[in-house]
Amino acid sequence: MAVQSNLKSMVLCLTTVCLVCSALLAGVYAMTKAPIDETSARILRESIGAVLPEGGELSEPVAAEVGGQQSEYYVLTKDGAPAAYAVKSCVPGFGGTLEVMVGVTADGVVYNTSVLSHQETPGLGAKCTTDVPFMEQWRGFDPAARVLAVRKDGGDVDAITASTITSRAYTLAVKNAVDLVRSLAGAAPTDGATGASVRPAETQNDGGQDNE
C-alpha cells in the first residue's frame, strides 16, 4: 500500500519486525520460565510420591539406562535398606514419547505407576491417564506371578479399548522399570539366588523379540 517495495525498505521492515518479535518472546520466556520449571518439578514430585509407599527417605536422582534410554531413578530407603525405587521410564508411544514414573518395591513388585508426559491421541491413548481400571491394575502387579504383556500378546495386562499401541508402550515402560530394579536388587545382598539366575535370561529374550 503505502511503502515502496525496494531492497532497503524490505530489509529494514523484516529486520525490525524480527527484532521486536524476538525481544517480545525473550521477555515472555524469562517471565514464564520460573512457573514452568516449578510446574514440572511439582509434577515430578507428585508422581514420585504417588508411585512409592509412604515414609522413608528419598534419594537424589540416579542416572541409569532404562530400556536402552538414558533416564534416572530414585531410591526410597527405609531402615537403612532400599525399600522401593521410582524409575522414570521413557518409551515411544503412539504419538510421541511416553514418560511413565514406575514405582517398584525392592522385591520386584510394581507399587504404582503415573504418567509424567505423553502425546497420545485425546479420547483414545490419552485415556492412559484417566482410565481407572487400566491404571489400577498396576497396583501390586507381581511380574513373577503374572505375565507383563497385554492380553493380545498373551499376557495379563488389560489394554485400553482401541488403544493397543499405547497400552503396549505403557506395559513396556513398566517392564523396563521392573527389569532395572531386578538388576539393582540382584546385585544387592537382600535378594536370593533365584532372581539372579532366571531373570536376566528372560530379559534378554524379551528384548530380542521387541527389537524384531
Binding site: M1, A2, V3, Q4, S5, N6, S9, M10, C13, L14, V17
Partner: peptide
C-alpha cells in the same frame, strides 16, 4: 503495522 510494511514482504 500494515501501512508501513512493503507489499513484497
Amino acid at each position: 503495522i500494515a501501512p508501513v510494511v512493503p507489499d513484497k514482504v
